[in-house]
């Protein structure tokens, strides 16, 4: 059974919004993540967003769209988007799409 994403997956630590991403990020899941992340960015007044890909086994271009959209929003306030625990396949997509130039991939 695939675990559903819940609000507990969004945590604010030191003005950083940490988002624990689900197992699969496709257009179906990405919509909800985008909306919730944006709402948290506005409400919690965070400066940076950290996306944790630890449990993520699948991503498509919707995930790239999600990162670009969050970058646009947070960079207005001088913030950054970080990606952690990125596996090879997902890293490949981040490089292929060029999105690695605007976000920070941390190992």
């Amino acid at each position: 059974m695939v675990r559903r994403m819940e609000l507990q997956d969004f945590q604010v630590i030191d003005q950083c919004l940490c988002v624990k991403l689900p197992e699969e990020i496709d257009h179906h899941h990405a919509e909800w993540i985008c909306e919730t992340t944006d709402r948290q960015i506005m409400q919690q007044k965070v400066t940076n967003v950290v996306f944790d890909f630890e449990s993520t086994k699948f991503m498509d271009s919707s995930g790239v769209g999600m990162l670009i959209g969050r970058y646009r929003r947070i960079s207005c306030f001088g913030g950054k988007v970080y990606c952690i625990h990125v596996d090879r396949q997902i890293k490949r997509m981040l490089y292929l799409s060029g999105v690695y130039r605007i976000i920070e991939i941390m190992d």
Binding site: S61, G65, G69, L96, S97
Partner: peptide
């Protein structure tokens, strides 16, 4: 075309066909 999207307002990256080709 990479990065082309007809729906930029929807958080789309425009990378769909590029990923398929890659």
């Amino acid at each position: 075309q990479p990065m082309f999207t007809s729906k930029p307002e929807l958080n789309r990256s425009g990378m769909g066909f590029s990923f398929m080709e890659a």
